[in-house]
Amino acid sequence: MVTIAVNRGRPGGVRVKICGLTEPAHVAAAAEAGAGYLGFVFFPKSPRNVSIAQARGLALEAPFGVAKVGLVVNPSDAELDAILAEVPLDMVQLHGAETPERVAEIRARVGLPVMKAVGVAEAGDLARLPAYEAVADQILVDAKAPKGADLPGGNGLAFDWRLIAGREWARPWMLAGGLTPANVAQAVRLTGAAQVDVSSGVENAPGVKDAGLIRAFIAAAQGG
């Protein structure tokens, strides 16, 4: 099994995931700016969706040492097999309604680290975290999507970061949801996050990344 190292140092050691990449130029920009993870979305409803062929090309552009993450939503075994047969991923991110049991099944099947996204809007949502910490390699704490939303993430929404301030975590975790170059430093200070994830916060239109915003976000997250 591949092990993804997590730098727990702050602020300079904050690891950044740029998610929803669709263009080689933005893969290069993210890597050059110091991203620790590059995310590729396999979800047709998303404006950031990529085909298996597109994702393979993008992943092959990534330099050694930057983790390549495939985001999937309630995937079937056949979907996972098709993606992993072609795309050299280092981690699978589950961003749907997968149960802890399904997370464990997928982790055993794919032989890669698995990150599970958990949506948070209020304190009661935190009760779901321990069950996922028991089976996933990492946890992505995201803003819960509004009821009826087409997308489970990437909606540009934040949650009250104070809900997780000071929490003791059983697994490495990543903060997501409404992060931008303007607020990511504050989010890191409030939550103690050693890892952060951004998608819409570095775009100038849905699904259209901006290299300047990518660089600004990573610099702000890392205290630059």
Rank of each mutant, 00 (worst) to 15 (best):
L89P: 03
A165L: 07
P44T: 14
K209C: 14
A29G: 07
T99F: 11
G20A: 03
I52N: 08
K45Q: 12
R48K: 12
Q54V: 05
F43V: 00
F40N: 01
I4F: 05
G34T: 09
R15D: 02
E86V: 11
V110H: 04
D77Q: 13
S46A: 11
A194R: 13
V135D: 09
G12T: 09
L129H: 04
P47R: 09
E23F: 06
R215K: 08
W161C: 03
L157P: 00
A123Y: 05
R128A: 11
A97P: 00
G57T: 14
M174V: 08
T99S: 15
K45V: 01
A170F: 01
A127G: 07
L58G: 04
E101T: 01
A123M: 06
V66F: 01
P63L: 08
G20F: 04
A170L: 15
L126Y: 03
L71F: 07
H26C: 06
A136V: 01
S51V: 12
A31G: 14
G166H: 05
D142E: 04
G177S: 06
M1G: 09
I106S: 01
V110P: 00
L60E: 14
E122G: 13
K209E: 06
R171G: 10
A134G: 10
K17Y: 11
V41K: 02
N155W: 05
Y132N: 01
E61R: 08
G192A: 06
L60A: 14
E168I: 07
S76M: 09
L60H: 10
R162M: 11
A182G: 13
V72D: 00
G154W: 07
V16T: 10
A5I: 09
A182K: 08
A185D: 14
G192P: 12
P206R: 12
G148E: 14
A67E: 04
V6Y: 03
S51G: 11
N49T: 12
R109F: 12
R109C: 12
L213E: 09
V103P: 00
A30R: 10
A78M: 05
D197R: 05
L126V: 07
L58M: 06
H26M: 13
V66H: 03
A211Q: 15
V118Q: 06
D197L: 13
M174K: 02
V120A: 14
R189S: 10
